[in-house]
Design a binder for these strands. Structure first.
Lengths: 340, 340
DNA sequence: CTGAAAGCGCTTACAG
DNA sequence: CTGAAAGCGCTTACAG
């Protein structure tokens, strides 16, 4: 005698009434509901999720797909931890669980997602590591599964996404550097086929354009995400006919490598090269002079993802207008970006 | 007409036969099986997981519970990414999925797990962030859910665990430092109530004992996991009646802070203070002089977790002897731990 | 080797 | 407001 039948016998009520009471459906006597809830609590009853899913067609959970691929994972670290927490904070009150679905590094992302979706493991999906043309989006659209992405594709229009405000970052950084007299501003973007590199580059070019500064492709460096990538770039920045006087980074730890190489060359950040970093993470806070970079709330990003997902989850199909939310990033001025 | 019934009509076979063919059960004609598999492939059939779970009592997935708590999460980052990949590599061939279950920072870990277990979301669990006395273990034992832990409790005997070889680390590091003339060796352990701090401290005391060096509690520093915690410790190490001459770390990034503070005091790692770090992560590889630390395979750790879990998953109850596996950590000698 | 049928533990129209 | 019953899509003894 297990599950709901145990409650039914204990309470002398039908399955239906118990189910309705437990699920907060209308049309249950308040006193009956109280009794059911009390008995459930007392007997430690939790509904069997498989049975519930099969009967209702809903799993009560949301999947968050991440890559276990090395390059992206390296930057992922604490990034996703913060996001997950934000997502949960919005999901839990709605009785929804978050299931993180790690796609093995060896496995094809599309095939992995296809299987998750076909097996009906979750009611909705959150995708990350978005590529400029990401087939996963069409997959989810074709099977009518509710989803939202962390990051956007090149044609970011007909679905909901949340992304960092790369445009805002590019503009704030360029505005500030130009105001300080810089004209030769370099940027780093990922070598990967990740779309945010493209977004950022475009935004950067636009920000330069606003100040009537020509965009120089030679000052765009496609690099990995590591500390060593920052290290390697310094000589390329400085030892050229027209050296860069400033650099804007998309990865946290690259700044550490830049500082190190500058130190080796007896140069000073903010004096010999203006540097603006990306996220204000613990790992870069010890740099001296302090690294000017951007503050953002991962928790807010997570909440935004859940918030975009929830209405669609409640009433699928009636999609409404897609949500496009850019998580604001606020510049934190320190000492690494002095005048030219 | 969906799911298995579509196949049934297409093939003119009963549900039972199709199910048996799909699930690789014995007693199906080879030709029949081939036809079923072909049709399933062609029609893109994937069994509904809820129905399958309800009927079979097995979910086909393994849960990996992680904390979203800040302190532990900070170190977690790439650590877990590597482990997940190792776990998957063993699970996938068995048709099992890995579901990462992030416990929100605000939520009680026991209650979170209790709910997961009661709802029968997974067939087996992997636990991390193990405390010296971790009630979650008794919970899983009492409901007879298969599990293995990443890390061990104080009484690590009647269940399977995989842990880093803290004993090996302590011994190798102490042996090496003592051989170089060090007698005043300090260590950092987590302030948290995480058991690995305890394990490491005991192993460290034992390693000292082997060399007949008294264990001095004043040289054990309970600190956070951050770079700044390393920074803060340097003065405490050196500005005391009998200064420490060496330090052994449990966290990767603490070394960065130690280097920084030493540089400020015009002291050199490996000359004025011997330092042995923990994991050989990208983030510490740029340190000069190079940080002596330990190499380990996260992938192997993940594989060990899955390997310990799989036999129990196949035949529950017939537990067999619990697996206790320590992931070897090999010392990588660089320049930060010179003679006294 | 294959089929018919019960059953897994819930939810949800449908009556009353 | 409550009960009786069908049904969600599979698996698995049980016959044959």
């Amino acid at each position: 005698m297990k599950g709901i039948s145990r409650l039914a016998r204990e309470l002398q009520l039908s399955y239906g009434t118990i189910s309705r009471a437990l699920n907060n459906k209308s049309g249950v006597n308040a006193e009956t509901r109280r009794k059911v809830l009390e008995a459930a609590e007392r007997l430690g009853y939790e509904p069997n999720q498989a049975a519930r899913s099969l009967a209702s067609g809903r799993t009560g959970s949301v999947g968050f797909m991440i890559d276990l691929d090395h390059e992206t994972a390296a930057s992922g670290d604490n990034f996703f931890i913060g996001i997950f927490d934000g997502v949960q904070s919005e999901l839990t009150p709605h009785g929804l669980d978050l299931l993180v679905l790690p796609c093995p590094s060896r496995q094809d992302k599309f095939a992995y997602l296809d299987r998750v979706v076909s097996r009906r493991l979750v009611d909705g999906m959150i995708l990350s590591g978005i590529e400029p043309e990401d087939a996963r989006i069409e997959l989810l659209q074709s099977v009518e599964m509710t989803f939202v992405t962390m990051g956007r594709t090149a044609l970011a229009d007909d679905y909901s996404w949340v992304d960092l405000d790369f445009e805002g970052v590019a503009e704030a950084a360029v505005d500030r550097l130009v105001a300080q007299g810089h004209q030769r501003i370099a940027v780093t973007v990922p070598t990967e086929d990740l779309n945010f590199g493209r977004v950022f580059k475009n935004a950067f070019a636009a920000a330069l354009g606003k100040h009537r500064i020509a965009f120089d492709p030679e000052l765009v460096f496609q690099t990995g995400l590591g500390e060593e990538d920052g290290y390697d770039i310094v000589d390329q920045l400085l030892d050229r006919p027209r050296p860069a006087t400033a650099i804007l980074l998309l990865f946290e730890v690259a700044a550490i490598g830049i500082y190190r190489r500058l130190a080796e060359r007896n140069l000073t950040p903010g004096v010999d090269l203006a540097i603006i970093g990306f996220r204000d993470e613990a790992i870069i806070r010890h740099l001296r002079p302090g690294l000017t970079c951007f503050d953002l709330s991962l928790h807010e990003a997570g909440r935004a993802l859940a918030t975009a997902l929830l209405p669609q989850l409640d009433r699928p199909k009636q999609s409404g207008a897609p949500v496009h939310f850019k998580v604001p990033m606020e510049i934190m001025v320190r000492e690494s970006d002095g005048p030219q």
